[in-house]
Simulated scan of single mutants.
Amino acid sequence: MLGRTRHLLRGGALLAAAGLLAACGATGPTGGGSWEFTDDRGEKISLPARPTRIVAQSAAAGTLWDFGVKVTGVFGPQKLADGRTDPQIGNVDLNSVQSVGSTYGEFNLEKFASLRPELTITTMYDETLWYVPDTAKDKVKPTAGIKIGGKPIPEVLSRFSALAEALGADVKGGPVAAAKADFDKAEAGLREAAKAKPGLKILVVSATKDDLYIVRPQESGDLKYFRSLGLDIYEPKAGADYFQKVSWEQVREFPADLVLVDNREAQALTPTQMAGISTWKLHPAVQADQVGPWFAAAPMSYQSFAKVMNELAELVRRSRTDVVG
């Protein structure tokens, strides 16, 4: 259960401040010339030409797509049970890519090989390539890992921007520059919203039918970033890694004016499902109808996080600060 739980919450612990590692791209939009990139493990990838056939984990694929880099194949969450696109994969056109696996631990090496991939890209919470099984990691090289665990969002955005640029994307003009401007505006808006609501206490949770998980913002890149913008997000005093696990009977021991709930429907209970749990309905924020989404696995792009911050700022503006004393 602990392994499954870590999988559940590490996927939302979305970033150290080591400076950007060296990355350089080949000239020309479709390759030509040698190509090198050093990933966040410190591993240098050297190829005879810029890779164009890329297989990427869902969150990485969604991020690169927004930066203008289209991928050939994907692995990791793609669709929800009702057929809707999983938020983790963002704007990727699932009709134009091939899937080599959609659940944790699933990786079809035969299908992967058929795509003739030149580079595999995924995220990391530590030094482990996310969603790449141990049995497959030596068979999908070369691999590039971008670390997101515990790193503030701007640092992760910078790393993905460097990777996208190395892969031939224009990250200084066009849609990416416009998205960066929207991101900066959304950041200022969230900072202003937080400043206008001093004393607003926020709790972030993820849930299963048996347990409630109090998310640790210092280990979650997005929440760590939001705290730096002025939001007062509760930090658990107990537990380990990315959360403190508590029983549903303990829910009132964690009062807050506003609760943000993990929105990954494939991994966690939705607010509608949580509403059927009697003790959850006793939480003061729930009674005050001050519950919103935590975008635990949003793609790490300017476009994605501009939207996340705009929605969060609006939620903060609407919230009362007197729900708890």
Rank of each mutant, 00 (worst) to 15 (best):
R317G: 01
E249T: 06
V261C: 01
D66F: 04
E36G: 13
P51Q: 03
N263M: 06
L258V: 09
N108S: 09
S220Y: 10
Q57F: 07
K44M: 13
T270Y: 04
G325F: 09
D138E: 15
T85C: 08
P152R: 11
E165F: 07
W130H: 15
P198L: 03
A22H: 15
P271W: 05
W294D: 09
G199M: 02
D82I: 07
R252E: 12
A61P: 13
S220Q: 11
D40F: 12
A240G: 08
T27A: 15
P175N: 01
D170P: 00
D40Y: 03
W248T: 03
L167F: 03
D126C: 08
E311M: 13
S301T: 00
T272G: 08
E43F: 07
A297P: 05
A162H: 04
E127K: 14
H283D: 06
Q273K: 11
G276E: 11
A238K: 15
L200V: 10
L260N: 09
R10P: 05
F295R: 11
F37L: 07
T208Q: 07
A186Q: 03
A268D: 14
G230N: 09
F226S: 03
T122V: 06
Y242T: 13
E43G: 05
M274V: 05
S278V: 02
A179L: 14
G199K: 08
V55W: 02
Y242L: 08
R317S: 04
W65H: 07
A256F: 02
D126Y: 10
P77M: 04
S319I: 03
L200W: 02
Q98Y: 09
G68D: 03
P117L: 02
V291H: 10
L9G: 11
A144L: 02
G168K: 04
T85Q: 13
A113N: 00
T63M: 00
T72R: 05
E118K: 06
V97W: 06
P217Y: 00
D182C: 05
D289S: 07
G149P: 05
A49G: 11
R10H: 12
Q287N: 07
G145D: 08
Q273C: 07
P117E: 08
A60Q: 04
A194E: 09
Y242K: 07
A313F: 03
R227K: 15
S228R: 11
P255Y: 03
D182I: 09
K147I: 10
E314S: 09
W294S: 02
A169R: 01
V323G: 01
V156Y: 06
R216K: 13
A144T: 03
V71N: 00
R50I: 03
F160T: 01
V171G: 01
K245A: 00
V204S: 14
F295K: 11
A22I: 10
R264V: 12
L21C: 11
D232R: 10
I202A: 00
G32H: 04
Y125V: 11
L9K: 07
L14Y: 12
Y234L: 13
S114D: 10
V140T: 01
Q88G: 14
N263K: 06
R116Y: 00
V286P: 00
S34E: 14
P293M: 04
R6D: 09
E165H: 14
G149M: 06
L129T: 03
N263Y: 01
A178G: 08
Q290F: 00
A296S: 15
K201S: 12
M1T: 12
W35G: 05
L223A: 10
Q273V: 04
K201P: 07
E192L: 14
S102N: 14
R84C: 10
